[in-house]
Structures are given as structure tokens and as C-alpha cells.
Design a protein around this nucleic acid. Structure first.
Length: 152
DNA sequence: GCCAACGTTGGC
DNA sequence: GCCAACGTTGGC
């Protein structure tokens, strides 16, 4: 059982979109480190859902891995924005798991909150220049942030 | 919209 | 395989 943080721009795909769709394939990640994290995810793992490039930025809910990583079909779509000409169905480069909606927080746990909180010292997302869109999170940090968000 | 951080690409 | 140039992310 591992814990993660996944970033999404709410204009592209928000926690409300996940709530509506119930399940989504986490397609379009084109960063090797993020992909490696996606491939390391196991069924039942939980992820903090983070809204980036919005005001305020922060964790807005929780998602659960329901299907482990399979080849991301968008890499083969020659007309799509995620097409990768170096990838083939025989040797796919990019993989994505499916996430299910778990909950939306009563209140957002903002990046500012996380940076200030001594209990969250060392959390990747609050580190300067942390661009990685799929990050591991410790169990302690996960549960602490979830408690902050759900208590409202 | 700016720009720091940092990943990727490609020439050598 | 180094590294400069370039592109992207994402907070502000």
C-alpha cells in the first residue's frame, strides 16, 4: 500500500470531473519519472488529488488506483496532442493507471498551508521547483493532509 | 504574463 | 557522453 500525489490543472481535469466520471485513466503524462511512479502504483493505492495552476493551488481530494498501469493509448493517436512517434504498440513508452473518485475535501489544503506546516516538513510538493506531476507521499503526510481536508 | 527550475534534445 | 539551447511546468 503506497500513497501518492497527482497533479492536475482543474481547467483540464478537476476533482469535480473525477467525481462526475467516477473513474478516469490518467493519460497524457510525458515525463519519465512521473511514468515510473505511475507504473509503481498498485491496486488500492491512494492518491492526493492536487489542483495546479489555479488560485489557490492545493490538495482538493482523494483518488484510488483501481487498475494498474497499462499502455497509454493516447501515445499511438497520430492526431492527438499526446502522440509519441517513438512509441509502438509492441514497445509502448507511456503507461497510465485508472483512478476512481474517493472523496472531495470539505476544504482545500493549500500549498501555502503545506509549506507552513511543520508536520509536513520535507513533503515533495512544497519544495521549491517541484514540477513532478506524480509524486510519492509518506503515509503520515497523506493521513495528515486528508485529516486537514476532511475536517473542513 | 513572467520567469525560475529543470527535463529533453541534438550537435559535436 | 557532454552540455548549450530549447521547451515545459507551475507558482506567483
Amino acid at each position: 500500500m503506497n500513497y501518492w500525489l497527482i497533479k492536475s490543472e482543474p481547467d483540464a481535469f478537476s476533482i469535480d470531473d473525477l467525481k462526475r466520471d467516477k473513474i478516469t485513466s490518467w493519460e497524457g503524462v510525458r515525463n519519465y519519472q512521473a511514468r515510473n511512479n505511475l507504473r509503481a502504483m498498485e491496486k488500492g493505492d491512494l492518491a492526493l488529488f492536487y489542483h495546479s495552476s489555479t488560485n489557490p493551488t492545493g490538495v482538493v481530494g482523494v483518488a484510488k488506483v483501481v487498475v494498474t498501469a497499462l499502455p497509454d493509448k493516447t501515445q499511438f493517436d497520430t492526431k492527438g496532442e499526446y502522440y509519441d512517434k517513438k512509441s509502438t504498440p509492441e514497445k509502448p513508452i507511456w503507461y497510465c493507471p485508472d483512478f476512481a473518485f474517493v472523496e472531495k475535501f470539505k476544504s482545500i489544503v493549500t500549498l501555502e498551508d503545506m509549506k507552513k506546516d511543520k508536520k509536513l516538513a520535507g513533503i515533495l510538493v512544497a519544495q521549491r521547483g517541484s514540477r513532478l506531476s506524480v509524486q510519492p507521499v509518506s503515509k503520515e503526510h497523506f493521513e495528515y493532509i486528508r485529516a486537514l481536508g476532511t475536517k473542513g
